[in-house]
């Protein structure tokens, strides 16, 4: 391995200096990119879910073309991988994983959480998914089938969870507040 004696923090300092010197990336560009990336957060995905629960046309768009639905919510998607949406329905629950690395719908959920990138999550999701869900406090009924989605290539996948009972008459803002990051990956389900 090259530069095996260098600490990665020092390598970053070296990279930063060289990329600036070569006009590839300067400090202002990097700061701007960090700010733009930090701005993406699970609240955006939650707003999409809540709108899908309250707007039939939007729901159809979201299931047909997640990228267009995200754009309709003002989320920048240009140049990003296409977004696919997996609909949970009675009797079928989706769980997203990337067993090869950490592909994650960052445009609508932000940075992937630590657990999503962990070896234990990646190993278990495709082999002991029901037990894995229990680690997140999620106990699915035996008659609910699990469909694991191993995100291996060019799409990024988010789950459209089922709208929980007890939310009749709620508006989209109130609904969005109950949708968590894990609900849109399938490790948890929204509840009230």
């Amino acid at each position: 391995m090259i530069l095996g004696d260098l600490d990665e923090r020092d390598m970053l300092k070296g990279l930063r200096a060289l990329l600036a010197e070569q006009g590839i990336a300067n400090a202002a560009e990097i700061a701007e990119r960090i700010a733009a990336t930090d701005a993406a957060n699970p609240g955006q995905g939650a707003a999409m879910v809540a709108r899908a629960w309250t707007d039939r046309e939007f729901r159809a768009l979201m299931l047909a073309d997640g990228t267009k639905a995200a754009e309709a919510m003002g989320i920048p998607m240009r140049g990003l991988p296409p977004l696919g949406v997996l609909e949970n329905v009675p009797g079928l629950h989706h769980l997203v994983v990337c067993t090869l690395c950490s592909c994650y719908p960052r445009a609508v959920l932000g940075y992937p959480p630590f657990w999503y990138k962990s070896a234990a999550y990646r190993a278990k999701a495709v082999r002991t998914p029901r037990a894995l869900l229990r680690e997140f406090g999620t106990e699915l009924a035996r008659d609910v089938a699990i469909r694991v989605v191993d995100s291996t290539a060019d799409y990024r996948w988010m789950v459209l969870p089922e709208r929980p009972a007890g939310t009749d008459g709620w508006d989209a803002a109130r609904l969005a507040a109950i949708v968590r990051e894990g609900d849109m990956i399938g490790v948890t389900v929204p509840s009230v």
């Binding site: 769980l95 495709v126 082999r127 998914p129 089938a145 699990i146 694991v148 989605v149 191993d150």
Partner: peptide, 16 residues
Amino acid sequence: LRRIWPEADADLLVEL
């Protein structure tokens, strides 16, 4: 998935 690991109790979608 059960055909790959009997304990897996799920099906699977993979992009190939």
